[in-house]
Design a protein around this nucleic acid. Structure first.
Lengths: 180, 180
DNA sequence: GAAAAAAGTCAACATGGCTGACATAAATCC
DNA sequence: GGATTTATGTCAGCCATGTTGACTTTTTTC
């Protein structure tokens, strides 16, 4: 990234900040780091998506379908917090191109349960691999303990009322049940 | 509900993980936590933006203009990594509505140097306040030391070749608004 | 004086959000 | 058994924000 224009000295009114007390200012660097970190993080899958004619929306959908095979459309809407129509467009493309399979539920035949096809699993695996590589590298640079610390920090950044749901979602995939 | 995908299901790493070396698979939870954390994080300013008829693009532009008063359009393009045309649209609205001021450079009159107006500073301050509040709360929940740890982790998540630039960007603004 | 740089603009298009209205099948309630 | 609710899908259109490509103007630099 290039240097910011160094030629001008702006006069700012509040430049007489008092460096002693913990200023709200002191967290701006974390705000910006989160911006840049996330930008690179979600940029990783782009190279894989582009040749397929897919975008980031496809990534998100396929990721969660793959993580929670058999999830309902409603579950997905709840996780992604987008409208049925927005999801429908992306989901249809994933089904048409053979990355996701949609079958009627056995107990409730109104439901369409979503499953990744082998092709879909492979693609989802690529996304996980490339993003895991970035995280893994970052954790190694930070030394031991950061895996847990980062997890706690990120969880604490989530709206308190959503944390239980997110936790269930993560745990759930590791136990093999459907989100409720 | 049975697990239909035994091929992906072994991605239940935690069951037989040895804690020594982080395997790629074990990082899926961090991938998802980052997704949810960032979603809530960037969702904060939305309530402020909506009544103004602005979107997240306006937020990003105003933030960096406010942090680096007198920056050139080129600098902003470099930070945001969007096209001149995309930026132009958003920037014009911010200027028209009196949040950003654009003046010709003194030493190089081709340049348009960007400054936040008092109104722009106030709005940018609101964004910083609400996002700082979330981070601050998260850090408190995590205990001491997390501020530095989170900073190191996030920096390590950035593409190595960009880190120096990001660091310069952050330092530059925090070191008083004087050119070096 | 020519070339390069900084910025702006026009036109067209893609992605992925959104609202509103409506359709269908299946489950559930009374 | 009929009414209602639920889960899903779909059409139509709009909006925000990204893209490419071509071109202009002003100013600086070589």
């Amino acid at each position: 990234m290039a240097d910011i224009n160094p030629t001008l000295a702006p006069a700012r009114p509040e430049s007489q900040t008092d460096a002693s007390a913990p200023r709200p200012d002191s967290l701006i660097d974390l705000i910006e780091l989160l911006f840049f970190a996330y930008r690179d993080f979600v940029g990783d899958p782009d190279d894989i998506l582009a040749p397929l004619g897919f975008g980031r929306a496809h990534h998100r959908v396929l990721h969660f379908v793959n993580r929670h095979p058999g999830m309902r459309v409603t579950d997905l809407l709840d996780i992604l917090r987008i409208t049925k129509q927005s999801l429908g467009r992306v989901l249809r493309e994933l089904v048409d191109e053979g990355f996701v399979d949609s079958r009627a539920g056995e107990s409730d035949r109104r439901q369409r349960l979503l499953f990744p096809t082998p092709k879909g699993q492979a693609l989802a695996g690529e996304f996980i691999a490339i993003q895991s590589r970035r995280i893994s590298r970052a954790l190694e640079e930070c030394g031991p303990g950061m895996r847990e610390d980062a997890g706690r920090f990120l969880m604490a950044m989530i709206d308190p009322e959503d944390r239980a749901g997110v936790d269930r979602l993560i745990q759930h995939a590791e136990r093999g049940r459907r989100p409720r």
